[in-house]
Amino acid sequence: MLLTVFNGSPRGRASNTACLLEPFLEGFSETAGNAYELHYLAREKELEEHIRAFSEAECALWAFPLYTDCMPWAVKNFIEALAPFCGRQSNPSLGFLIHSGFPESLHSHNLKRYLEKLASRLGCPLIGTVIKGGSEGIREQPPAMTRALFRRMRELGQVFGRSGGFDPVLTARLAQPVRFSVWKLPVARIGLKMAELMYWNRMLKGNGAYEKRFARPYSQDNAEE
């Protein structure tokens, strides 16, 4: 199978999306005869190339983060450019991998609905949608923290490489938690505090911006530009 992958992250190569795709594509490539090509939608100047890649693809995987509760700009820009392909007979089958900084997958449910409708609007056979929450910072985490996730992504890729579909059990596991139960919320709260201290505050301090972290540059007390 030849898989055409579109990475829609605004960060392109240096993205959490790329970190999730890497083990998936390794697993995918284990099946003899499988090959993939990778495109970065954030590279605005390559839009024509992306359209061509879509038009020639037999099977396409779109991967990107949730951005203000939907797709990032570059992905919408690409979608608009695909309007002429609506209903074309030879459109590729489409699979989606979406992830969010929010730990629960429920934040991505509307986007999943949109993407699946988009597949039908384009007339693309739908492979499915994989949702992964809690992806913020995985590109910087030590291997011990990401090992289990990357192993799962690799397995997902292996099954995809063999069957052309997303394994339902792995997909369901990756989507956990859908939401936190009342009992788990206190644990989640501790996790959020850890992220604050170990991730955000570390970066803020490294940039000498920690003291300004609650700044309100546009509040009316601050003079108009």
Binding site: R11, Y67, W73
Partner: peptide
């Protein structure tokens, strides 16, 4: 321009 996901508005120049 489009957001590049640098998070500068959160960790470099908070709020901007």
């Amino acid at each position: 321009g489009h957001c590049t996901g640098c998070w500068g508005c959160w960790v470099k120049t908070p709020g901007e």
